[in-house]
Design a protein around this nucleic acid. Structure first.
Lengths: 195, 195
DNA sequence: TTGTTTTCTTAACCTAGTTCAAGGTTTTAG
DNA sequence: CTAAAACCTTGAACTAGGTTAAGAAAACAA
């Protein structure tokens, strides 16, 4: 189990002593996910918060017309999960799939609650993680409401360039809220008369 | 200061003893906001989390073309604030304005941190509040990506009917991500051939 | 009470983005 | 190495929703 990265991630917001660190690590479960493998399937109850050690995943829903909508990406050093299902313990609507072979560390809901009991600092840690997710989610909403598709694509490349290595065009189009054909057209336009 | 509602709100997630309750209440500041009055202006640093005792507020941004985008509403028993500015202490992009005469209770960032020190349970309380906001924000993203304007309007009426009493049509249109003219058209259509 | 502002509607025309279809290229699995 | 699958591009026809404009109705301030 490769724990260096997650310990560094935690230490960004809280400080652990040796015993706490050991206890935290004992709560984690390592897993390797192959490219295209589903880590979480809609309809299931989400039982873990997942930290990405290497690789990349996408979270997505499928609407009534069978169209896939990418809700978020997660790469090295990020957390992912179906927050709705995780807190309500109801069947979720999120699918989580690997974009590349990935190593993740999983913290089960029960262990997370144990952690809150034994090391209350983790309440703070996850509060901050969730706060940051909320800011990102709201910023994306604002972008979707106020920018054109082309502007959103430029923003995306600026902010998440590392994801371009993992996600094919139609997945990025889905994240941006447009069709793959239209993203292709935008690219063509940009290549012809660049910024 | 009308504290009954906020104490009930807090008690949904954590239990306070008398001293803790008194301490919490001593951290709050009451404010009355007139309809159309700005509670927070973009460019300012957001210094408070705000709990609504009565009335209704909207949070919105204004894009380069001067168009207003409603990010969220807040009514009785909800919290509102510019999370980005609140945690980064950078100038924010959110405006918060009263839709009706409102009474709010404000918890300053400093007091919130004091509260975290003195009564660590509040880390949990605000973690849960933020988790719920994140779920709502993601659900809205999913709706924006996968539903038509008419479907979003129907969803909105089902879920937030109480806001219809406070917000004029053009404000709801902005929240839905469409123009007031188009929402008016949808209404006309729905009136002619109802569900 | 009356002028002013805000709100809502309707209609004609316009456009960003979609749909459908087809062909070409790259990646992958066996 | 090769067939199949996944991926990307382009173009023509289409549509959900936007823009502009103008008028009616309601709410509000003086």
């Amino acid at each position: 189990m490769n724990t260096e990265l997650i310990l560094k991630n935690v230490s960004k917001h809280i400080t652990l002593n040796d015993a706490e660190r050991q206890f935290f690590l004992s709560m984690l479960e390592s897993r390797f996910i192959k490219r295209k493998e589903l880590h979480l399937k809609e309809g299931e109850v989400c039982k873990h918060s997942t930290f990405i050690v290497s690789g990349a995943l996408k979270g997505f829903t499928i609407d009534k017309q069978g169209i896939e909508h990418v809700i978020n990406f997660a790469i090295k050093d990020w957390w992912i999960g179906d927050m709705y299902s995780l807190i309500s313990q109801q069947p979720g609507i999120l699918n989580i799939e690997a974009l590349a072979d990935s190593e993740v560390l999983m913290l089960s809901r029960e262990n997370q609650h144990l952690l809150y009991e034994k090391v209350p600092k983790f309440e703070r840690f996850f509060r901050i993680i969730v706060e940051n997710s909320l800011v990102a989610s709201q910023q994306r909403l604002i972008n979707n409401l106020s920018l054109t598709a082309e502007e959103r694509y430029l923003e995306f490349m600026k902010k998440y360039s590392s994801i371009l290595e993992y996600a094919p065009l139609h997945t990025i189009a889905s994240y941006l809220g447009i069709t793959p054909e239209f993203l292709s057209k935008i690219r063509g336009r940009m290549a012809r008369k660049p910024a």
